[in-house]
Design a protein around this nucleic acid. Structure first.
Lengths: 247, 247
DNA sequence: TATCGTCATTGATACAGATCAAACGCGCGA
DNA sequence: TCGCGCGTTTGATCTGTATCAATGACGATA
């Protein structure tokens, strides 16, 4: 399987943006076969895509918007266990029931495949399984990085870590590069951020404003964030030098 | 690929115990090919298997003993991101450098394969990639479950969650079943438990003794744990009813 | 324009767990 | 037997974040 580049991703079929799950197959002829079972789903902000435990008869990738994976305890405590940004894959081949609630946190477009045909295709075409393995390993790394955030970082560092991740992803997605200031809209409410970070929404609010006071970020409106110096933000996040920003 | 049963696992080659990474291939003829590059590694308690960032030229499974995957921040704060018990797989095909420190927390035996031949084999035999995908998805689920523990559970619930996981794994490994009391040795120091749970070792000590006072567990010595009622422990852990104990 | 609902901010106080400090128990080598 | 080191326990105190409670800002709807 040839290596994967941004350009190849963008050329893929009718997918509006780079789209790993689909594009991994662009080089081979099974794309057509899969197209038969490919379709789009759209959701409004706040809508639930699937409930944990429900049957999920499709797999797919986020094309536009943001979704979250959350777990909830009986007494209502909830923890977000994944943030799904464009190009992220959703669903587990080989398992019927969803393991988490999937909720659209903004308006959402997903590119989906009916599960059974997708699984069959995977059995026949090795490099799809390999591509999926690679993506799953990336997700595992991300989950483990987040375990460090949840287990050992202070509230301030947690906020900085989240902003840093979103800023990085946003820059990658929109091909922004270089060292200039970054700007993006937060795709999450304070409460959703709290659920991702293992904090309360009040603490999130306080720490965001503290970072603003200290000049690490600037805010216009409640949701629009400007990061004048990404390295400074990464430092606040407690990341090792060079937070992995594409240069 | 035929479904996988405990019995099939136990019949596998010269692996002393059930051993998923190897056994997934038991039914096919590439086992022999792989044997050429298979070897054992042993470590003493406390020894480091690989340092994060170092080149790792093998992949493998834990056969005996316990190892941990840890991440450390510059200032010394550390978080364990994975607990490797017998049958767990270590290493990432397709990546040269280890992403985490791997440390033996007890004496350790690993069944290893040289990485390059293993990767080649994976390219040629689809069901190895599929088996690896399945295992990786399981690990991802475990990591996400742990995110809930780290983000939202109290110290007492965290301890109960850890004991519950170890008890369950120990029972499965040793084919203990039914509702009787469970006994096992903690393979971790208080400090290692703290690093897994995002706590300090003092808090771990206090909460373990609190659970003992309340009759949830019993201790003989510092490390030997007796769980008279697994359901009670699972309840303390805040798990949904039925903590998934094999019945 | 008034009213409502949602999301966010701000303040006062409480508390779980961290931190600092001391002592215990036990295996081990001299 | 003694002392030493390591893992563990226990106590006193401190502090970061949760909790409880108002208030504010803004868009939508009538």
């Amino acid at each position: 399987m040839k290596n994967f580049t941004t350009d190849m991703m963008r050329e893929c079929g009718d997918c509006p943006i780079r789209h790993r799950a689909v594009c991994a197959r662009c080089e081979s002829d099974e794309l057509e076969r899969l197209e038969e079972v490919k379709y789009y789903r759209t959701y409004e902000a706040g809508q639930t895509v699937v409930w944990s435990g429900d049957r999920m008869e499709f797999v797919g990738s986020v094309v536009k918007g943001v979704a979250s994976l959350t777990q909830t305890m009986e007494d209502g405590r909830t923890q977000m266990v994944g943030l799904l940004l464009p190009s992220d894959f959703v669903g587990r081949p080989g398992r019927d029931a969803a393991a988490y609630d999937v909720v659209a946190t903004t308006d959402l477009v997903m590119c989906c495949f009916r599960k059974k045909p997708f699984e069959n295709l995977m059995l026949q075409t090795p490099h799809i399984a390999q591509r999926l393995l690679e993506m799953t390993l990336d997700e595992l790394d991300a989950a483990r990085e987040w375990m460090l955030v949840l287990g050992r970082k202070t509230a301030r560092e947690k906020i900085a870590s989240l902003l840093s991740i979103i800023a990085r992803r946003d820059a990658t997605l929109n091909l922004r590069t270089g060292g200039g200031p970054l700007e993006f809209d937060l795709p999450l409410t304070r409460e959703a951020m709290a659920d991702y970070l293992g904090l309360t929404l009040e603490t999130v609010s306080r720490q965001i404003n503290a970072l603003k006071r200290d000049g690490v970020i600037d805010l216009t409106g409640k949701r629009h964030v400007i990061v004048p110096d990404f390295d400074r933000l990464a430092e606040e996040a407690g990341d090792d030098s060079d937070g992995g920003m594409p240069s």
